[in-house]
Structures are given as structure tokens and as C-alpha cells.
Amino acid sequence: MINSKYFFQGFKSVKSFDSPAFALGASFIAIGALLKDIGFNLEQSIFSTFLTYALPGSLVMAESFLVGASLINIFLAVWLVNARLYPMTVSLMPLLLHKSQPRWKYYLSCHFIAVSAWLIMKSNYQSIEKKYRIDFWMGIGTGTWSIAIVSTIIGFLVSDYLNKDMMIGLAIVNPVYFACMMVGAMKSLQINLSIILGAILGPLFFFVSPEWSILYGGVLAGTLAYFVGEFK
């Protein structure tokens, strides 16, 4: 069903020296502490990371919950901030698709699509035989997802001992990790332009519409980068 050799190879890749374990752990410790602060109990905090597993969406959910937003508003705010998962999935799954593999693996393991696992897979897929890439991916996803869940528990349990400075220190780790991984991924004109234009246009569109800024800025930047790269 799942090839254990490739699954564990993927699972172990989160242990490598340049793995996201530290950044991911620090970020979800902060989430665990935040969820406790806004009134979640331990089970609810675990349930939240278990089912959502997307950091920016969890932050938006916590903020919206705190101000008493309606369920529809929470849905829209989370969907908009997590809409990047759609192009991320479309740009990953065709690399993993193999006719001998059952479809349930793809529909189940798409839950693991998040920045950390996605970037690891994008930089490693060529070294894995295509038939077993989905098993390797499930290993990476299970590894990063487990780190997120365990870190949420740790964050919830130690939240009383975390002062404001510590929370700020934890909060910077995630954007720094993401920024370094993105800079490390800049290996072709199209990708370089996508990243540079996205980083400029995303915040610029915030002045037009804070909710839609990631989508507007991202789609415009990615499309411009695509056409420049294609016609170069």
C-alpha cells in the first residue's frame, strides 16, 4: 500500500541539518501558547493543528475568533490567506502522480501541503523514482505534521512560562526560515522574478485590500514572471 522504504526516507528528511524542524517547531510552540491564551483547551489546540496544519491560517483564525468574527467571516479570512495552497498543490501534484498509485493517497496527503514540506519536496523530488514520490511525500508530510502537533502541545503546556520577548523571538523564526528557503529556491529567471515581484507586490496591494493582497499581488507577480520567462 505505502512503500515503507520511501515513506521513512521522506520522514527522516525532516531530521537533516537544513530541515525545517526548528523553525516549524518554534512557530507551532507560539501557536500552542496563543491558542491557550484565547481560551482553547489542550484537546482543542491539538485538534486545530491536526486538522488545519497551516500556520498563517491558524493565526488568522485566532485573531478573528478573538474579535468575535462570524463563522462566514472566519471562513473567508482563512480561505483567502490559505488560497496560496491551491497553486502550491497544482505545482506539486503533477510531479508525484503515477498511474499505478491509488488516488486516495493524493487526496489524503494534500493535507500536508504547507510551506515547509512543499519546499523540501520541491528540492528533492528529482532524486526519487516517480512511482514512489507519493510515498516519499507522505513521509515528509507526516514528519512535518507530527512536529507541528507536538510543538502545539509543548506551546500550550509552557505558555505560562513564555514572556512577551520570548513570544516575539519565536514569531520572527518562521518568516526568517521562509525567507531563507525562498532565497535558496531562486535558481531560474521565472522563479527569481516570481519571488522578487511577489515580495514587492504583496505588501503594495495591502494598501488596496488587506484581505486580498496576497492573492492580487501573488497572481499579478507570478503571471508577469511567467510571461517574462517564456518570452526571454
Binding site: L92, L197, A199, G202
Partner: peptide
């Protein structure tokens, strides 16, 4: 290739916004 560009650009937009 277009979706690949969109994935990187929306991620960059998100990180810059963060």
C-alpha cells in the same frame, strides 16, 4: 510552469506581508 510561478509569487507575497 505558470502555476509554479504563482506558487512561488503568492508565497513570497505572504512572507513579505508577514
Amino acid at each position: 510552469r505558470w502555476f509554479n510561478c504563482l506558487a512561488y509569487s503568492t508565497l513570497a507575497a505572504l512572507i513579505a506581508r508577514m
